[in-house]
Amino acid sequence: MTQNVNDWLNAHGDYLYRFALARLRDPHQAEDAVQETMLAAIKNNSFEGESSARTWLTGILKHKIIDLQRKQIREQPLSDLIDLDASDSSMDDFFDKSGHWIDRPQEWDMPESALEQKQFLGILSECMDKLPAKLKAIFMMRDVHELENENICKELDITTTNAWVMLYRARMGLRKCLELNWVTG
């Protein structure tokens, strides 16, 4: 079995690493996720060759990624979650006292050429990495893994209201960052 796992590491390790990196956006965590996946593959040796080894390993990896994201969010002190009320002062940067936009959203010139596309994705990556860790993690769970809100709340042990507010704040932060750094039309 160990032999098998080492073969898998050689054949699929790089792919699994990229898959994890794309979702965790942290090289160390991505490496941990791959390692955990390999160890789990040894332990619950349930691979029966019906699917490809890569598909099977990716399935395990997805769970490991969510475990890591959950840990990232849960390790935050509770008080951080409580002050997440969207009506609090944290949204003062975006709206004035009467609830109007301070900077009205602009029309985005979406990238067309391959070069623009690459620049845009680069800026978006940087913007994501500027988000507070827990907002980034919940945003990735929802908008990349496309986990249902219900499942996110169960995984994270938070209320649905908290989840909506965190997602709202993550999206507000991202679009603001993009607006500042991407040329608008």
Binding site: L21, A22, M110, F120, L121, L124, M128, D143
Partner: peptide, 25 residues
């Protein structure tokens, strides 16, 4: 409109990293 663009862009970033064969362990 921006939130919709954001969502599809995030999925593109993910795919982009996932298929970038220059990224290896």
């Amino acid at each position: 409109q921006q939130l919709n663009q954001l969502r599809s862009a995030i999925q593109r970033v993910t795919l982009h990293t996932e298929s970038d064969s220059t990224i290896t362990l």
